[in-house]
Design a protein around this nucleic acid. Structure first.
Length: 279
DNA sequence: TGCCAGGCTTCAC
DNA sequence: GTGAAGCATGGC
């Protein structure tokens, strides 16, 4: 167990932001996540200090990067003009939310599964997939399961995934796994590639369109100019920006801004107040 | 019970 | 190139 004092870091907002599906609140203020074949428990002590169930060495090697701790999120609000009341409110509401640097294969499979599902259903499907085909990871007397490797999924057929509630997406996940396992999709190269090039490769995967490709770029490759447009974002752009969001203003941070928009749009607070930019 | 969900592929036109 | 239909399943 280690302790860290962190700024602009909120476990509950990260867990609830819809970018990852295996981080959950297991008891009041205590969060557990499984990533990279490891289990991490984390909690805040109420004074801006956080407890993590790992060694200093593991935290530096794995979780500092995962939580994107080297980035400064505090300056984001300075980019937003005063008249954009929606985005200012969104950044204030989501303060502490960060863009995770997740395993790109896990992001790919998870967001293929996400299409036309709500977040609780996505979580359930992803957990079922892990329980069936992940590797056991023992932690504190409990066994958890890693996210299954692409190689493992590549060897399955649709019948093998039937109990995971993937629906018609089962064939997409298998096909994506086969492309990855075959070395046809190379994450190290995509990470270095520019947004357009990486997007083209990702959209060549059966079952990956513009939106899922943008999610992979943002959450798996940390290409922060990717701007996933789902039903929520489209609705917000329509209601708050008259159908025209000023993307150019946020070059380099578009995806981060998008994630705050998404998080705030879904919040009970916003749903109560309604549109802020247009009367 | 009916509608909707972090969309995509396929097939007309 | 554009637009509509069809898609499996679960949450609310």
């Amino acid at each position: 167990m280690i302790t860290r004092k962190l700024r602009d870091f909120s476990l509950s907002k990260i867990a609830g932001s819809g970018q990852c599906f295996r981080m959950q609140e297991v008891s009041a203020g205590v969060f557990r996540l499984v990533a990279f074949g490891r289990v991490l428990k984390a909690e805040e002590d109420g004074a801006g200090r956080f407890l993590f169930s790992c060694t200093e060495e593991e935290f530096r090697a794995v979780w500092e990067d995962y939580f994107d701790l080297s980035a400064d999120y505090g300056a984001l609000p300075d980019l937003v003009p005063e008249e954009d009341r929606f985005l200012r409110a969104a950044l204030a509401y989501g303060r502490g939310m960060r863009i995770l640097r997740q395993d790109p294969w896990e992001v790919t499979a998870s967001f293929i599964i996400s299409q036309r599902k709500n977040i609780p259903a996505i979580r359930a499907a992803v957990e079922a997939l892990c329980a069936h085909y992940g590797e056991p990871v023992a932690e504190g007397g409990t066994v958890y399961f890693s996210f299954p490797s692409a190689e493992k999924i590549a060897g399955l057929d649709c019948a093998g995934l039937r109990s995971c509630s993937l629906g018609y997406r089962d064939k997409y996940v298998i096909e994506a796994a086969r492309r990855v396992a075959a070395g046809d999709i190379r994450w190290d190269e995509l990470r270095k590639a520019d947004y357009e090039t990486a997007g083209e490769v990702l959209r060549s995967i059966y079952g990956v369109g513009k939106k899922v490709a943008d999610c992979i770029q943002l959450f798996g490759l940390h290409h922060t100019d990717a701007f996933p447009e789902d039903t929520w974002i489209r609705r917000i752009i329509e209601s708050e920006y008259g159908g025209n969001f000023p993307r150019e203003r946020y070059a380099g941070y578009l995806g981060i801004v998008q994630q705050y928009m998404f998080f705030y749009a879904r919040s009970p607070e916003y749903r109560q107040t309604g549109p802020l930019n247009r009367p």
